[in-house]
């Protein structure tokens, strides 16, 4: 009996411990006005991907992250802080980006993040800076021509944890089984080793993968609209306003189209002319 009480007390105390850890959330950093702080330090800290071709990819030669989103973040920083403004980059993944934003480690997320109603409950978004659409990557000659072909028992679709594309599959092909891998390279490897029939995510990311794996092609076109937005903390209306204004300026000056062309100009399956702004 004594042992039993001891066990119960251990469980109760551990619950109390974790409650204390979460409950005493002081909201210091995330609640400060980002614009004021950025102007003081002359820096905006961006959370970007480092494992996604064309959007944000670590260059192993010099350990710098490079891609469309990194160039865009730099351009936006200069619009907001002036030509001497510094953009700092912190590498994030789909599962760490929101906690890092809420903790104030980063000021904004620019990491292939689609604006969705669920996410809007947790964070705020700028208007869209890139219009992607979800698509499928399959082996050349695969019988799967579009997402409806996957809506059957025994079909397996591969995706990545933390992306909203897996939730879309549940909508478009409810009978298919979904496997969520931890990153795109592992999902691609799982596709090659036959763990699933198709890999699904946004077309821009899939295009990057088909470039390096010529035996695999995009199929069926985009079946959803995935507008990427810059995610920021709630209660930052000034920062949101500045971001949207900076985005408009970057678009109007033609800088947006130059960056777009630099990264997507030579990618098969991407029509840069359609995406220009």
């Amino acid at each position: 009996m004594k042992k039993f009480f001891r066990l119960v007390s251990v469980i109760i105390s551990s619950l109390a411990l974790v409650l204390v850890l979460t409950a005493c959330g002081s909201k210091s950093l995330a609640d400060q006005n980002v614009v004021t702080r950025a102007k003081r330090t002359n820096t905006i800290t961006w959370g970007v991907k480092a494992d996604t071709k064309l959007f944000g990819l670590m260059d192993v030669k010099d350990s710098h992250i490079k891609g469309f989103e990194v160039d865009m973040a730099r351009a936006l920083t200069k619009q907001i802080l002036g030509p001497k403004g510094k953009a700092e980059f912190v590498q994030v993944t789909s599962s760490t980006r929101v906690p890092l934003l809420k903790n104030g480690n980063i000021d904004a997320i620019m990491a292939t993040m689609t604006i969705t109603p669920e996410r809007l409950k947790q964070v705020d978004f700028s208007r869209s800076y890139f219009d992607a659409g979800q698509s499928l990557l399959v082996k050349k000659g695969s019988p799967i021509k579009n997402v409806r072909d996957l809506n059957k028992k025994g079909a397996t679709v591969l995706g990545v944890v933390g992306s909203n594309s897996v939730q879309n599959v549940a909508k478009f092909a409810p009978k298919a089984k979904v496997l969520q891998l931890s990153d795109y390279a592992q999902a691609m490897t799982a596709l090659k080793s036959g763990q699933g029939e198709a890999l699904t995510t946004d077309n821009g990311i899939l295009a990057g993968m088909s470039v390096e794996n010529p035996g695999y092609v995009l199929t069926g076109g985009a079946f959803t609209k995935e507008p990427y937005g810059i995610a920021i903390n709630k209660n930052q209306p000034e920062f949101k306003h500045d971001l949207n204004r900076a985005l408009t300026k970057v678009e109007q000056s033609g800088q947006y189209n130059r960056i777009l062309k630099k990264w997507f100009g030579n990618v098969p399956g991407m029509n840069v002319k359609e995406m220009e702004r």
Partner: peptide, 14 residues
Amino acid sequence: NAQIVYGQNSTYIL
């Protein structure tokens, strides 16, 4: 760092 390297090209994973 291994993940970053095979992120460049998924044939590098093995």
